[in-house]
C-alpha cells in the first residue's frame, strides 16, 4: 500500500506508530494476519506495504507484546491468530497516554494559529 507517499520522514513516523496500532487492534480482539493487514490498510496511510506487518508482528512477539497460535475452525481454513499479552496491554496504555500529549504538542507547534484560537 503506497497511498501515503514515500517521504522518508513519513515512513519513519509510520514505522513508529504501526506497532501501537497493531496492539490496539489486538486489544480489541485477536486477529489473524490478513485481517490485521486489511484493517490497517483500511485506516489509510499506515502501511507502506501489506507484507511489512508480518515482520512487525514477529518483532512484537519477540518483545513479548503479542503471542500467536494456530486455530482450526470447522469448515474454515486454519489461521494463525495473534493475541496481545498483558505486557502488550501495559505498553499500549503507556503509548496512548504519551501519544495524546505528544500529538497535542506536535499539533501546537505545527499549527500555532489553531492553538491560539483554541486557547481563546
Amino acid at each position: 500500500m503506497c497511498d501515503m507517499g514515500s517521504d522518508p520522514g513519513l515512513t519513519e513516523l509510520r514505522r513508529g506508530v504501526l506497532g501501537p496500532c497493531v496492539l490496539a487492534l489486538l486489544d480489541d480482539r485477536p486477529r489473524f494476519g490478513l485481517e490485521l493487514v486489511r484493517e490497517l490498510a483500511a485506516a489509510g496511510g499506515l502501511l507502506t506495504s501489506d507484507g511489512t506487518v508480518y515482520p512487525l508482528l514477529n518483532r512484537l512477539r519477540d518483545a513479548g507484546l503479542v503471542t500467536s497460535e494456530w486455530q482450526d475452525e470447522p469448515g474454515e481454513r486454519a489461521r494463525r491468530y495473534y493475541f496481545i499479552t498483558s505486557e502488550g496491554r501495559e505498553q499500549l496504555k503507556a503509548f496512548r497516554a504519551d501519544w495524546t500529549d505528544f500529538s497535542a504538542t506536535v499539533t501546537g507547534v505545527l499549527f500555532p494559529g489553531a492553538r491560539k484560537e483554541r486557547s481563546r
Binding site: 501489506d50 507484507g51 511489512t52
Partner: peptide, 14 residues
Amino acid sequence: WKLGHPRELAAEAG
C-alpha cells in the same frame, strides 16, 4: 504489489 517487494520484507524482518 500490495505485499511489497521481497527485499523490503526481508529488510523489515531483520
